[in-house]
Measured scan of single mutants.
Amino acid sequence: DHDVVPEDKFQETLHLKEKEGCPQAFHALLSWLLTQDSTAILDFWRVLFKDYNLERYGRLQPILDSFPKDVDLSQPRKGRKPPAVPKALVPPPRLPTKRKASEEARAAAPAALTPRGTASPGSQLKAKPPKKPESSAEQQRLPLGNGIQTMSASVQRAVAMSSGDVPGARGAVEGILIQQVFESGGSKKCIQVGGEFYTPSKFEDSGSGKNKARSSSGPKPLVRAKGAQGAAPGGGEARLGQQGSVPAPLALPSDPQLHQKNEDECAVCRDGGELICCDGCPRAFHLACLSPPLREIPSGTWRCSSCLQATVQEVQPRAEEPRPQEPPVETPLPPGLRSAGEEVRGPPGEPLAGMDTTLVYKHLPAPPSAAPLPGLDSSALHPLLCVGPEGQQNLAPGARCGVCGDGTDVLRCTHCAAAFHWRCHFPAGTSRPGTGLRCRSCSGDVTPAPVEGVLAPSPARLAPGPAKDDTASHEPALHRDDLESLLSEHTFDGILQWAIQSMARPAAPFPS
Rank of each mutant, 00 (worst) to 15 (best):
Y361V: 09
P322Y: 15
L359S: 14
P506K: 01
E321I: 12
L308C: 13
R338T: 07
P327D: 07
R318G: 10
N394H: 08
T430A: 05
P253A: 09
A504I: 03
C278P: 14
R423A: 12
S502W: 03
L308P: 09
S502V: 01
S512F: 10
A371R: 10
V387S: 11
G349Q: 13
V344K: 09
P322E: 09
P351R: 12
T435Y: 13
P332C: 11
T414A: 10
C277W: 04
G241L: 10
V403K: 13
S431H: 12
L462Q: 09
S502H: 06
S502Y: 00
R400T: 07
T491H: 01
P347G: 07
T301G: 13
Q316T: 12
H415T: 15
C266F: 06
G398A: 13
T331V: 09
P448H: 12
S441F: 12
P374E: 04
C416F: 03
L294I: 09
P322I: 10
S369F: 05
A460V: 11
A251K: 09
S441C: 07
C269N: 05
L359F: 12
S254E: 07
P466R: 07
E265H: 00
L478R: 07
D493N: 03
E320D: 09
P328Q: 12
Q316R: 09
S305F: 09
L384Q: 11
S378V: 11
M355V: 15
E484S: 01
I297R: 11
P317I: 12
C289S: 14
G398I: 14
P347D: 04
T447Y: 07
R400D: 08
F285P: 13
P282K: 04
L364F: 10
P368N: 11
P511S: 08
P348D: 06
D356G: 09
L395I: 13
C304A: 15
V360R: 02
D409Q: 10
L287V: 09
P389Q: 08
H259R: 08
Q325D: 07
P247D: 06
H490I: 03
L294R: 11
P347M: 14
V403H: 08
P256W: 14
P249S: 05
T311W: 11
G407S: 12
D482H: 04
Y361R: 05
C281T: 12
L384E: 06
C439P: 00
A251I: 13
S378P: 11
A396G: 06
A467L: 08
G375D: 13
P327K: 06
S369E: 08
R283N: 05
E274M: 03
S485I: 08
A460S: 14
V403Y: 13
S339F: 10
E326S: 13
A399L: 07
T408L: 12
D470E: 07
E489I: 02
T357A: 06
F510L: 06
L275T: 08
R461S: 03
Q325V: 11
R505S: 06
E330H: 12
K261R: 12
G398H: 14
C424I: 01
G375Q: 13
L252S: 09
S443T: 13
I500N: 01
L384I: 08
E452H: 05
S339I: 06
P317V: 10
E320M: 13
S502R: 02
D356R: 04
L252A: 14
V312C: 10
T331Y: 11
E350G: 11
L250F: 12
D470A: 09
S512C: 14
L385R: 06
